[in-house]
Amino acid sequence: MMKKTLLLYSTVEGQTLTIMEKIAEHLTAQSPEISYDLYNIEEALPINLDDYETILIGGSIRYGHFRKPLIQFIQQNTQLLNSKKTAFFCVCVTARKVGKDTPEGSLYVRKLFQKVQWQPNLKGVFAGALYYPKYGWFDRTMIRLIMRLGGEKNHDIKQNYSYTNWNKVDEFAKQFYLLVIS
């Protein structure tokens, strides 16, 4: 019997989608019995949420906030989310620092779950990436300033920086797989 899994993401530059795709690869590598659908939560969803046994939502932080469509989706679907097996992960550059890389240590995750009534079975926090060459002048300047305030002194704005700990993503993917098959 196929177990249907829904993977939803909200991303600014694409790192959340990249992480979600890595988790999806892990699912299919573990079991051909698992089928999944992957959608951007910020677009109209052509599906019925009731059709899925397990739902994973991933969202990124930009300038200290999750994107509004992510929060709205969670608030509009709280009852359904709480009736299913669910998981959540946050992607933010601050998670590159030990202590801020857990759901308990992430101010953003703590604030989100104080604001919404959803309680996922599994939560994760992953460090994101910076894509300076893609940014306009304002974003490049602001992000570089924020990074300097956080202790990063020599960011070359001609380079990309990935802080994602892929071993941590793999561990989360294993835990999510166990949730899917439970």
Rank of each mutant, 00 (worst) to 15 (best):
K115V: 09
Y36T: 01
F73I: 05
W118A: 02
R110P: 03
I143L: 01
R140I: 09
Y36Q: 01
K115H: 13
P133H: 04
L38V: 06
R96L: 04
F138W: 14
L70Y: 06
N121P: 13
D51A: 07
S35G: 12
L45G: 00
M147Q: 13
K84A: 07
P69S: 10
P46D: 07
F88E: 00
K97H: 12
S83N: 13
A44G: 06
L81I: 08
I146P: 06
V125T: 04
T86P: 06
K100Y: 11
P69E: 11
V125A: 01
N40A: 13
N40Q: 11
T94F: 08
M147T: 13
E42D: 14
G128V: 01
I47C: 14
I61N: 07
L56G: 02
E43D: 14
D139S: 06
D37S: 14
R110S: 15
P46H: 00
F66M: 08
Q72A: 14
L49E: 07
E104K: 13
V93S: 03
Q79W: 05
F66D: 05
F89T: 02
M147N: 09
T141W: 14
I146H: 07
I57T: 00
I57Y: 03
I74T: 12
N40P: 13
S83I: 10
D50S: 12
Y39F: 13
A129V: 07
G128C: 07
P46C: 06
L38R: 03
M142K: 05
M147G: 12
W118S: 04
P46Y: 11
K100I: 12
V125K: 02
C92M: 13
M147E: 09
E42F: 10
D101I: 03
D139T: 06
Y39T: 12
A95I: 02
E42M: 14
E43T: 05
R67H: 15
D139G: 06
P103D: 02
G58R: 07
F66W: 15
K123W: 15
V98M: 10
N77T: 14
L70A: 13
Q119L: 12
V93E: 08
L45R: 01
C90V: 14
E42P: 02
V93F: 05
Y135C: 02
E43C: 15
L80T: 05
T54R: 04
Q76G: 15
K111R: 11
G99H: 01
I57C: 03
L149G: 04
T94G: 03
Y52N: 09
Q79H: 15
S60R: 08
L56S: 00
A87T: 09
Q75P: 11
D51S: 14
F126T: 07
Y132K: 10
L122P: 04
Y36F: 08
R110F: 03
N48F: 15
C90Y: 10
G124D: 01
Q119F: 03
I146T: 09
P133G: 05
T102G: 01
Q75V: 11
A95D: 00
G105W: 12
N82F: 05
P69C: 14
K97Y: 10
R96C: 01
G64K: 09
G64N: 01
L45I: 00
I143V: 04
H65V: 13
A87Q: 00
I61L: 04
K85M: 05
A44I: 02
D139I: 05
Q117C: 06
L49M: 08
S83F: 03
E43H: 04
E53H: 12
W118Q: 03
A44P: 07
Y39Q: 10
K97I: 10
L112F: 08
L149E: 08
G59D: 09
I47V: 10
D51G: 06
A95K: 06
